[in-house]
Simulated assay, not measured.
Amino acid sequence: MRQIVLDTETTGLNPRTGDRVIEIGCVELVNRTLTGNNYHRYINPERDSDEGALAVHGLTTEFLSDKPKFHEIAEELRAYIDGAEVIIHNAPFDLGFLNHEFGRLGLPSFVSHCSGVIDTLINAKEMHPGKRNSLDALCDRYGVSNAHRKLHGALLDAELLADVYLSMTRGQNSLSMDHEVETSADGVAFEALPLGEIIVVAASADELSLHETVLAGLDKGVKGDCVWRNYSPKV
């Protein structure tokens, strides 16, 4: 099975208002193994990045000015991802931009070349409801080092996401829960402790006798055996 972990950087948040893709990073997995056959391109968007986006990725107009335009890399990107399952964190954002870029060129949508899409943000929310599920938070949760991540970069983020995805989907190897501490927005810490030994306390003879008295009263009310007889030991 061939999978491509993908990330993009953009000039802003909305392709419909003119924002463009400026970086694409892809990491290849074949049968859940990193192959090293990665894909990475900087792209000249022919416009400036928004101030907020520039603060995130640090890719200046000057740096991108001599990079290829999207139409120059569209075919090699299509060939690279063709037939693969694509893994993206918050997939609607990246796919919205890539579909828009392909549409500008009169090409079939980006997703039409993929065999499927996995959104790790959706998966993370299902696995860890109510917790932080950003890429940084998942790196912390799964022990993936991101200490070298000062700014967002498409290839670096795709590499981190590949490690996170493999950890998320490796399966549970123990019946105990990992020791984890989450902090709410107001700074209150919630600590999840490993499961301890389950202690079962059996009912005493007196308790069983009282329980039988209650069931006998229910039997009388329904003129037969009450439903709780199916779940109760006979005394």
Rank of each mutant, 00 (worst) to 15 (best):
V200Y: 14
V117Y: 08
N14C: 09
S115Q: 15
I118L: 05
D140E: 08
I199T: 12
N37P: 04
P92G: 07
G25H: 03
G224P: 03
D94Y: 11
H179N: 00
L193Y: 14
D186V: 11
A154T: 05
G106T: 03
S145N: 14
V214Y: 13
N37S: 14
D163S: 13
E9V: 02
T8D: 01
H148A: 13
T8R: 00
C139N: 05
D206Y: 09
G221D: 15
H211I: 15
I198N: 14
E197S: 12
E197W: 14
V181G: 01
V200S: 10
R104F: 04
L195Q: 15
T10A: 06
I118Q: 12
E207V: 01
N44A: 11
E101T: 04
A79H: 06
V30H: 09
F97A: 00
H89C: 06
A162R: 02
L218N: 03
R16T: 06
V111N: 04
A202E: 12
D7L: 04
N14V: 02
K69A: 14
E23M: 01
V5R: 00
N31S: 07
E85C: 10
S232E: 05
F102G: 07
Q3L: 09
D136R: 15
T169Q: 11
V214H: 12
T120W: 07
N173F: 15
M1D: 10
R170H: 10
D225S: 08
T60F: 02
A185D: 13
G103V: 11
L6A: 00
L29H: 15
D136Q: 07
G171R: 10
V56E: 12
N14E: 03
W228P: 02
H148P: 08
R149I: 05
G25D: 00
L77T: 03
K69D: 07
D136G: 05
G52Y: 15
K131C: 13
G25W: 01
T120N: 03
N14R: 12
S167F: 07
A74C: 06
G52K: 15
I199Y: 13
G153S: 06
A158N: 05
G18V: 07
G58Q: 05
P194I: 00
Y39A: 03
T61L: 05
S176K: 13
V222R: 06
D50I: 13
D163M: 09
M177Y: 14
R47E: 01
C114V: 02
E28Q: 01
E62W: 10
F93Q: 02
A147H: 14
H128W: 04
Y165M: 11
Q3C: 05
T8K: 00
L34I: 07
R141N: 04
G83F: 02
E101I: 02
V56N: 08
L175V: 12
K131A: 15
I88A: 03
G58S: 03
D140A: 07
S115R: 11
V235I: 10
D140W: 03
D7M: 04
A53Q: 09
K125W: 06
D206P: 04
D157F: 00
S174Y: 09
T61R: 12
K220L: 04
S232N: 07
P45K: 03
G106K: 02
A203H: 12
E46F: 06
T11W: 08
D225F: 13
A55I: 11
